[in-house]
């Protein structure tokens, strides 16, 4: 008999707690912004701030709330196309200065002119510049996203953006533009 009571009591307590948690999970449900999360996943995560927002996540949230989709310079045409697909809007050309020339670029430091001031290192969002105080700096081309944030801080203008030559290594097949339709 006492065993039965014990089982019953624990059962009742567990049920009450379960009900409480169930109630709480409904009552205190946190509604995240799934659209902003998805947009954030599409952005290049360079956190360069060229869009006017302090990083990719804030820009994703702004786009979810109706900001223009064409402000991501490092992402380029490709990212805009993806965002447009997700948002269900028209593809727009890239905004601002990057509109005219949108080919992929990397920064290049003219090493004879570099005075080793480290200002570009501090500006680089992806840590693609190596060097130290009063030593010549250089850019790791593979890491550089071409965001050109290092160009402005350089006091001797020794950084230039050079276009990436198309090689067999980085040639991108634009497979999406080939119209593939299923024939019934």
């Amino acid at each position: 008999m006492s065993t039965l009571i014990a089982i019953l009591v624990v059962g009742v307590i567990a049920t009450l707690f379960g009900a409480l948690l169930g109630f709480a999970s409904v009552q205190f449900k946190v509604i995240g912004d799934p659209l902003a999360e998805q947009l954030d996943a599409l952005l290049p995560q360079t956190q360069c701030g060229q869009c006017g927002y302090p990083g990719c996540k804030p820009y994703a949230e702004a786009v979810a709330n109706g900001e223009a989709i064409n402000k991501c310079a490092p992402g380029g045409e490709d990212t805009i196309k993806k965002i447009a697909d997700l948002m269900g809007v028209e593809v727009q050309p890239l905004d601002g200065n990057h509109e005219t020339d949108n080919s992929p670029k990397v920064a290049f430091i003219i090493e004879e002119d570099c005075i080793g001031c480290t200002k570009c290192i501090q500006a680089c969002p992806v840590d693609a510049i190596i060097g130290t105080t009063k030593q010549m700096h250089t850019i790791i081309a593979d890491e550089c996203t071409g965001c050109d944030l290092c160009v402005a801080p350089c006091p001797v203008d020794c950084i230039e953006m050079i276009p990436v030559a198309t090689t067999t290594q980085n040639w991108q097949w634009d497979l999406n533009s080939i119209p593939v339709t299923q024939i019934d």
């Binding site: 009591v9 624990v10 307590i13 707690f17 409480l20 948690l21 709480a24 205190f28 946190v30």
Partner: peptide, 24 residues
């Protein structure tokens, strides 16, 4: 039954706290 029940209580308190804090 104290040990068993207390574990239950603690688990619920932790879960509940997490939900409330997350929301508020």
């Amino acid at each position: 039954l104290t040990t068993m029940t207390f574990i239950l209580v603690i688990a619920v308190v932790v879960q509940f706290t997490e939900m409330v804090v997350h929301k508020t």
